[in-house]
Measured scan of single mutants.
Amino acid sequence: MKVIFLKDVKGKGKKGEIKNVPDGYARNFLFKKGLAIEATPANLKELE
């Protein structure tokens, strides 16, 4: 799953980066803790 990092996550990504991460990791950790959001076309446009 492609995500946009909202905060730095040690060993995974830095704020503003767009990366592919495992689906479970994104849903169960990154999204729940507010560390990242899904890289949807709308979210990507908002980032620019």
Rank of each mutant, 00 (worst) to 15 (best):
K12A: 15
E48I: 14
A39E: 02
E48D: 11
Y25H: 03
L6T: 08
E48M: 14
K32N: 07
A36R: 00
N43P: 04
K19Y: 07
K45R: 13
A39G: 05
K12I: 15
I18G: 01
K12L: 15
K10W: 14
K2R: 15
K15M: 10
V21M: 12
V9Q: 01
E46K: 14
K7S: 09
G16F: 09
Y25G: 03
N43H: 09
K14T: 09
E38I: 08
T40F: 05
V21R: 00
G34K: 11
L30V: 00
G24N: 13
T40N: 09
P41G: 09
T40H: 06
E38K: 10
K10V: 12
G24V: 12
G34A: 07
N28Q: 10
N28W: 12
K10D: 10
K32D: 06
K10A: 13
N28F: 13
N43G: 08
I18Y: 03
L44A: 06
D8H: 08
K10P: 15
K15L: 07
A39V: 06
L44V: 11
F31E: 02
F5L: 07
I37H: 04
K12D: 06
L6E: 01
E46A: 15
D8R: 07
L30I: 01
T40L: 07
E46H: 13
D23V: 15
K33S: 09
I18S: 03
N28M: 11
L47D: 06
I18K: 03
D23H: 13
G24P: 10
E46T: 13
V9R: 01
A42R: 11
F29A: 04
Y25F: 10
K33M: 15
E17P: 00
K32Q: 09
I4H: 02
R27P: 02
R27I: 14
L44K: 06
V3L: 03
K19I: 10
G24S: 14
D8A: 08
L35F: 11
V3H: 00
L35Y: 13
G13E: 02
G13H: 11
K33I: 08
A39K: 02
L30R: 00
K15F: 06
G16N: 07
G34I: 03
K45M: 13
K2A: 13
G34E: 05
E38F: 05
G13V: 06
M1T: 13
K45Q: 12
E48R: 10
V3Q: 00
F31T: 03
V21W: 02
G11K: 05
E38N: 04
E17K: 03
E48T: 13
G11L: 05
D23I: 15
E17M: 06
K7Y: 14
A36N: 00
K14D: 05
V9A: 03
I18L: 07
K45A: 14
G24I: 12
K19P: 00
D23F: 15
L30E: 00
D23R: 14
A39D: 02
I18M: 07
G13D: 02
E48V: 12
N43W: 07
E38Y: 07
K45I: 11
K2V: 14
E17Q: 10
A39S: 04
D23M: 15
E38P: 14
E46S: 13
K14G: 06
D8Y: 09
N43M: 11
A42V: 10
G11M: 05
Y25E: 05
G24Y: 14
A36V: 05
G16L: 05
L6M: 07
K33A: 11
G16A: 03
A39M: 07
P22V: 06
I37P: 00
F31W: 02
A26K: 02
A26G: 04
D8M: 06
L44M: 10
A42P: 07
V21G: 00
E17W: 04
F5A: 01
L47S: 08
K19Q: 07
M1H: 05
L35I: 06
R27S: 05
V9L: 06
L44E: 06
G24W: 15
V9S: 02
N20K: 14
I37L: 10
V21N: 00
P41D: 13
L47K: 08
A36L: 01
K14F: 12
K32L: 12
N20D: 13
N28S: 09
K45S: 11
N43D: 07
A36T: 01
I18V: 13
K14S: 09
D8S: 09
V3D: 00
I37W: 05
K33Q: 12
L47E: 07
A39P: 03
P41I: 12
T40R: 05
P41K: 10
K7T: 12
A42E: 14
K33H: 15
D8W: 08
A26L: 09
K19L: 10
F5W: 02
A26V: 07
K7W: 11
A42T: 10
A39L: 08
K33L: 15
I37Y: 05
A42D: 15
G13T: 03
L47I: 12
V9H: 04
K14A: 09
A42I: 10
E17Y: 03
I18H: 03
G34P: 00
K32R: 13
F5S: 00
D23S: 15
I37V: 13
L44D: 05
K32W: 08
E48N: 13
D23N: 13
V21I: 08
I37N: 02
K2W: 15
E17T: 07
F31S: 02
K12T: 12
R27T: 09
L6N: 02
R27M: 10
G34Q: 08
D23T: 15
P41Q: 12
N20Y: 15
F5N: 00
P41E: 14
D8L: 04
R27N: 08
I18F: 04
A42G: 12
F29E: 07
L47N: 08
Y25T: 04
A26H: 04
T40M: 05
V21A: 03
F5G: 01
F5Y: 08
K10T: 10
F29I: 10
K7M: 12
K45D: 09
V21Y: 07
K19F: 05
A36E: 01
A36F: 00
I4V: 11
K19M: 10
A26Q: 05
K32M: 11
E48G: 14
V3T: 01
E17D: 12
P41T: 11
G11I: 01
K45H: 11
E46P: 07
A36Y: 00
N43S: 09
N20P: 07
F31L: 11
N20E: 14
L6I: 12
N43E: 06
A26P: 01
K14M: 13
K12H: 15
K32E: 08
F29G: 02
